[in-house]
Each structure stands twice: as C-alpha cells, then as structure tokens.
Design a protein around this nucleic acid. Sequence first.
RNA 1: CGGGGUGUAGCUCAGCUUGGUAGAGCGCUGCCUUCGGGAGGCAGAGGCCGGAGGUUCGAAUCCUCUCACCCCGACCA
Length: 568
Amino acid sequence: MKTSQLLTATLREAPADAEIISHRLMLRAGMIRQLAAGIYTWLPLGLRVLRKVEAVVREEMNHAGGQEIQMSAIQPAELWQESGRWEKYGPELLRINDRHDRQFCFGPTHEEIITDLVRREIRSYKQLPINLYQIQTKFRDEIRPRFGIMRAREFLMKDAYSFHLSDASLQETYQQMHATYSTIFTRLGLNFRAVMADSGNIGGSQSHEFHVLADSGEDQIVFSENSDYAANLEQAEALIPEQSRPPATLAKEMVDTPNQHSIEDLCTFLHIKPEQCLKTLIVKSEDGGLIALVLRGDHELNSIKAEKLAGVMSPLTFADNAQIKPGIGCEVGSIGPVALTIPVYVDHSAGNISDFACGANIDGKHLLGVNWERDLPLPTTVDIRNVCEGDMAVDGSGQLSFARGIEVGHIFQLGTKYSASMKANCLDEQGKAVTLTMGCYGIGVSRVVAAAIEQNHDDKGIVWPLALAPFQLALIPINMHKSVRLREAVMAFYEELRAAGIDVILDDRQERPGVMFADMELIGIPHRFVFSERGLDSGEIEYKARTDTENQNISLATAIQFIQERLA
RNA sequence: CGGGGUGUAGCUCAGCUUGGUAGAGCGCUGCCUUCGGGAGGCAGAGGCCGGAGGUUCGAAUCCUCUCACCCCGACCA
C-alpha cells in the first residue's frame, strides 16, 4: 500500500473531548471517527487492525473446534420474552418496531438466538458437544459510553456458545476455551491475566474474565504473587482472620464527637486508627426495612457481596437520613452496632477486633472501648468487604497484589439458565430428553484494539505489537520526488518487498522527512526502512524498529532477508 | 438517571462580561524558496457562531426553551 492511496487522516492535535490515550491516538492516527455518542466509523487504517484481531480470534476458535456462524443483529422480541430478559435487561436493550409494529431489538448478546437455533437443530446426543461462534456487531445502549471504542454502544464482539449433555462435558470445553483465550491474547502480544469473576447479568455459575493489564483499566484486579490465583476485586474472597480476637482491655465509654461524620474525621478527632473503628452502613432490605452492614473503618464495602446476603435489596441501595433517623434515632455518621434493633451483618474482620470505636446511635456521640460479646452480641460474621493489597490470598499462597485491567474477554458456565427457560433439550443414549447445558465465551474484538494501545504506546504514538499492526513495515524515501534515480530504486524495492509477502506501506507523499517519520511513528508501524540517495550510493538502507532508539545501516542486498527474519 | 461542563472554520481555541461588518494557530488549495525529525514567504478556499423562539434599530454576545457532545458515579466485551 502507498500512502497516496490510503485515506491518511493523521491529526497533530487530538479533539478536545478525547480523554484516554487510546482514544486520542486512534483519532490522531486516523483509525476511527465518531458518529454519535459511543458510535464510530472505522477508517481504513483502524479497520486493518480490527481485521487482524478478528483473524487471530477466528483462527484459534476454529483450531479449538469452534464453528463459525452468523446470527442476525436484529432479534425478535418473542425470544427475549421467552427467556424473561425482555423485561429484565432494561433500557440497555435497544428496542425497535418494524412497519407492522412488531417488536425487535438490536442484539446486545445472542443467547436467545443461539438457544433457539440449537433447540431446533440438535436432536441427539450424538451431535454434542457443539461450539458455535460468530464475530459480529453488538449494540448495548450504555448509560454512559466513554473512552472511544473502549466502551462504545456499538462494538464488535466474538461470541461463542457451547452446548453439552453433561456438566463434565461443559467443564471440558470451558477449560479448552480458557486455554484458547490465553493463546489468542498471547498471540496478539498482550500482557494479560485471567481472573475469576462475577457472572453478572449473563448468569450462570463459574466465570473468568481476561484482562489486559493497563493503568487506565476500569477494573481492579487482584492476584496472588505466588500462585495462579487472580480475581476481580468484586469477586475476590476475603479470608476469615486467623488469629483469634484479642481480649478486651478497655471499659466502654461514650464521648462527644460533634460534627465528626466520616471515619477519617473521627480518627483525627479522637486520635485513633481507622482499623480500631467500626463503620456501620445502612442499606434497604427487600421488604422496605433497614439492614446494617458493619465493616472495619479501614475497609470498603463490596456491594456485589453485600447484595447477595439474605434480605438485602438488590441492587444494593443505601438508606437515606429520612429513613434512618426515625428507624435508628440518629443520622448517618453516628451509627453503630450497639443495641441496634434492625438486622446486622458483620464482616469477618470487623468481628475480630476489640476495644473498638463506633457510633453511639445518638447524634454527635461515639462509643470507645466497645467489645463484642461483652457490650453486644456477635452474629455469625460474613464476607462483605473488598480485599486489600497485602491480604492473604484465599488459596493461602501469599499476599495479594492489585493491578488495573481492561476486560477483553469473559467466559461463563451458563448451565441450564437459557436452555431450561427456552426448552432446549435433546435425547440422550437412553432416549430420554435432557436439558442442554450451556457455556458462553466472549471477546471484545474492538475493545482489544483500544486495550492494545493503552498497553503499547509512547510519546510519539502507538507502538503496535506485530500481530496487530496495520502494516508490518514502513518504507520512507527521502526526497524521492527530486531524484528519478531514487524514485526508480524505491519503487523497485517496494515491489520486491511486496513480492516477498511483506505488508509494507510506502510513504510516497511529497512531504518532508520529518512529517513522514512523525506520521509513521504515530500510527505505530513496527519496522521502518529509510531509503535515500546517499544510501543508494553506498548500497545501504537504514533500519529502525519502532521500539529502537538508534538507526542501523544494513546492506540493501540483504534487506529483504533481514526484515523477513524480524517478521517471522 | 443524578452531579459537573462544552457547543464559533476540518482540528485546537479566542471573541460573549460592556450588543454594532466573524478572528488566530494548525490543517487544506496554488505559486516560489527550502529539503534527514511536524520548514518559510506570498496568494486563496473554507462559518446559518448547535437549533428554535424572544428582547432590540441591530444578537455569536442578553433572555427562554430545546438538541447534541464530553467528564464524574451505578453497568459491561
């Protein structure tokens, strides 16, 4: 490809509304343009990268025995009503009516469609297990799209669905998909981590997320330094403290704490440490009442864990002062577990401290020297907090570390969630109808592009891993337009490179060298040849990898072999 | 949906307070010079100042309503 034939659209300045680096660089490099909030046009350069991701994903899915299909983006409401998700999915589901006023939606995911297909086509256990996938545009009407294509409303996703007669068979395919995902992200040149995850909206039991590690990642992931253990923060289990609770040494007393509401304020005011305090959060219960959640002052509530507790309203909803004041007798900021009349859940760590401080349930007053089982009963403790850096991993292998991640893949064991409600079954060896067991496996193909940039860039622009680069090699001639001799040599060399199967972009624009260097670095081409008249005289060409700091001269005669070795 | 913000040239932004012929830099077109790290000069093209109402002799500027987009939170590949 020659730049003169490519819609190059590099920008020196990024549009002001682009915040994160991948979004800015994708705009500046001319990969994408925004059409509406969370909706983008892919320009030739961007599409090339997207296709590279697709190709790797497709190859590995096929290799793992997946069969590619293509389902419709537009889906009839009936199937969603059948699974119960027409109501449940909420406003994120983009609903549309056709001219006959029949209801449809633009598919955010395809469990209903695939289950419908499979229940029609699969009759016998002999056809199982089966793994069907597609690479297709999805639409989710996100409350807040952001970060360019990272969280777009319309995006490209690879979604695979497997069907099984038994749970053992599902386990097998699940493990295989886990391995396949690792291969895919490794081939794409990404630094990633598979973590245990909450299964969220899609439902099901076991689930792993694949995260590309990047500081700008939206997810907090947690991993053990000494084992494979890794989990999403919302899922990471906190261990029950090993040491038993220290004995009580202080007498309970009440102190005035006027206008001290936050744990931080309180600790400064009373000269105590947050880990010696309890914080008591009041949430709504399923029946409209109140429930108290008690945590150590230095710990954070994990809302995913909390809303799974019996009686707690889901989604987790904090009570406001209007409800708390009449129910408890004081406002937020002075609440404590002593003599509370509402149900109380106590976190494991909160139940393991002695001589603690907490709210007195009287405005402007706190209690000091409070002890479980002396001043108040200790209920069975539960895990409702986020783990902290340095906590012991749940597998006992060592301390936990934190990292930021971008979720690019997610695999689920769905079980019979959809197959049961949609009556997808087939006959087993005994001729008995069995409800199919399902797994599903997603990769955010377009998101991978943004994630790769987040992880691979410098102050000059994108630094593509070879597998993702829109071109493998940039060929930059110096002042070609002033020298017929050079022009002919460059063109001949360019044709030779192409004949050798190298994906090369020749910058044949009549630009000054600085402009060409800057553009090729911005769009992140991994390898670069600079061809000049002076090199022509000496029979040499200049080579520089995108990640190199220095040029090196190599013989023109062996240049093709040289680059082929680097592309292998 | 709650909170905050922005809409003026392709991009980045001034102008608005105090109403009076729409601006700069970059980019784009042409010519000349320059030519190994985003060159210089000259000449150009390009705007319903997001939209609709209103106030006024006169509105980018003041008022009202609307639409779009961005940022922070809950959601997710």
